[in-house]
Structure formats: C-alpha cells, structure tokens
C-alpha cells in the first residue's frame, strides 16, 4: 500500500477546504447532477458554453475530500477550454484512474493520480468528471460512476 499522503496530497486537501468555482452558475447552458449512492456524494455541475468554448463553470454539492477536490480542480482545468479539450481531459482522467493509461493526467490534475492505488475511492474522483461529461453531452438525469 502506498503512503496515505500520496492520496491526500496538500493540493487535494487545500482544494477540499477552499473549492474553486463553488457556486451555482446562472445563467448556464449545460447542467447535470452526479450522485454516488454508495457513499452519498452528490454534486451539480453547471456550464456556460458559447462557440464550443467553456466560458464559465461552477459546481455545488457535498462529498468526500477526493470528490470535492477533483470537482474543484476540474473546474479550473476546463474553464476557458474548448468542449473538445474538456472531453479529452475527461478521457485522460477517466482512463488513468480506471487503470488503463500510464500517462499522468496533465498539470495539477496529476495530484489525483494517487487515487488509482485506492480502488474503493476511484469513483469518488471520477464522479465530477462523469457529471461534466453528461452535462456537455446534454444528457438528462443523474450521472453515475458506472
């Protein structure tokens, strides 16, 4: 087993304490809700998209530190990006955490890489990303981590 501090890195604890873009977004063009029935993590992601660009993004909800930090870092990472780039980030995060890729997620998101060593916690980190994907794909209903 890896060190606990690989999972709870300073950056993650800090984002959990002071989540970025932690607010509702009005008006928004895209929205989705995410829920993990196993642990009760729940969040809403809202985006304002224009000309295929994520102009703004916000989220609200409650969950464990991994989920909250992942959501917070996600909003920072996709803000100002094209929708295609945001989807690529989803693929990178999801792929790595699901144990498929070996390429670390880019930039600060690499701080979440340690979650991969904790199979029971991977879904905590991927829930915000599934919710983002659902929002961008305009799917109704609640995102799950399956």
């Amino acid at each position: 087993m890896t060190e606990l501090t690989d999972l709870y890195q300073e950056l993650i604890l800090e984002h959990n304490k002071k989540p970025r873009n932690f607010h509702r977004l009005e008006p928004h063009t895209h929205q989705a809700e995410g829920f993990n029935p196993l642990c009760g993590d729940r969040l809403v992601v809202e985006l304002s998209v224009q000309d295929e660009t994520v102009n703004d993004i916000g989220f609200v909800g409650a969950g464990c530190a991994i989920c909250m930090a992942s959501a917070s870092m996600m909003t920072e990472a996709v803000k100002g990006q094209s929708v295609a780039a945001a989807m690529q980030l989803f693929d990178a995060m999801h792929g790595y955490l699901a144990g498929q890729g070996t390429v670390l997620p880019p930039g600060k998101l690499a701080a979440l890489a340690g979650v991969r060593e904790y199979p029971m916690r991977v879904k905590c980190a991927t829930l915000p990303w599934h919710t983002l994907q659902n929002a961008l794909q305009g799917q109704d209903g609640t995102a799950k981590t399956e």
Binding site: M1, L4, K17, C39, C64, A65, I66, M120, R121, C124
Partner: peptide, 30 residues
C-alpha cells in the same frame, strides 16, 4: 466536522482500523 466519512474510513484503514463508512443500508436513518 469538515471531514467526510469516506475519508475517515480510508485514513483509519491506513492505521489498521477497520470501520464502515456510508449509509449502512439505512438511508432513511441518515
């Protein structure tokens, strides 16, 4: 306060302490 039960469960496990974190199949109680 300020710590989700899931995080508590993981940290306790790193100390060898096995507890349950979650709704315990009793969501109405939660």
């Amino acid at each position: 306060e300020g710590v989700h039960s899931h995080d508590i469960g993981t940290i306790l496990n790193s100390e060898g302490v096995a507890v349950r974190a979650g709704h315990h199949c009793a969501m109405p109680v939660m």
